[in-house]
């Protein structure tokens, strides 16, 4: 597919996925003396539509380039954002960052894997499992990645609830050894 700009990508998402999109927007920034445009697209979908959204990214360009997935604890839900770069290598300034966000409730913290669609996503999926306490269904390699063995099972550093590691933190200003 020939490169299109951020607004075009958002339109494509809207026409193809329509009602499945929960929220979306395009951020535009200008850079340099020449005031060149740089766009990032943000699309949020329910987890059932995650793989469909990733397939749409693959339709734009395959193999897709995933930069990383980031995640946050929203209280009752956990949000995971997959940051893709589409249209790399076509011509200068053709690449657009496309972020696909999805959530899962803490009571049922499951997300489907995308590493069969994008092999490069494996490392970041392993990281999300251990840091957010979610389960990626179908992940080919579910082992821990960064967390060391002395962090107990069921503790996840980015969680802001009782599964977080706040109680394990030793603050120097509070004294103690």
């Amino acid at each position: 597919m020939e490169p299109i700009d951020g607004d075009g990508i958002l339109n494509l998402f809207k026409t193809r996925m329509g009602g499945a999109i929960l929220s979306s927007h395009v951020d535009t920034y200008v850079n340099g003396v020449r005031k060149k445009k740089l766009q990032t697209v943000w699309v949020r979908v329910p987890r059932e539509s995650l793989r469909e959204a990733v397939s749409l990214v693959l339709e734009m360009q395959a193999p897709a380039h995933i930069a990383v997935a980031s995640g946050s604890d929203l209280g009752n839900d956990i949000e995971v954002l997959y940051h893709f770069q589409v249209f790399w290598g076509f011509k200068r300034e053709s690449t657009v960052s496309v972020t696909i966000g999805t959530t899962c409730p803490k009571s049922d913290p499951h997300l489907p894997t995308i590493s069969d669609l994008v092999p490069g996503a494996l490392i970041t999926e392993r990281e999300k499992q251990e840091f957010l306490g979610i389960i990626i269904d179908g992940i080919p390699d579910p082992r821990r990645l960064f967390l060391v063995d002395n962090i107990p099972e069921g503790k996840h550093p980015w969680r802001k609830d009782e599964k977080g590691v706040q109680d394990m933190v030793r603050n120097v200003h509070e004294g103690g050894d």
């Binding site: 850079n31 340099g32 003396v33 020449r34 005031k35 060149k36 740089l38 770069q85 790399w88 290598g89 200068r92 300034e93 053709s94 690449t95 657009v96 960052s97």
Partner: peptide, 8 residues
């Protein structure tokens, strides 16, 4: 690919 700052 995505020039930022002076690279633009």
């Amino acid at each position: 690919d995505q020039p930022f700052g002076g690279y633009a």
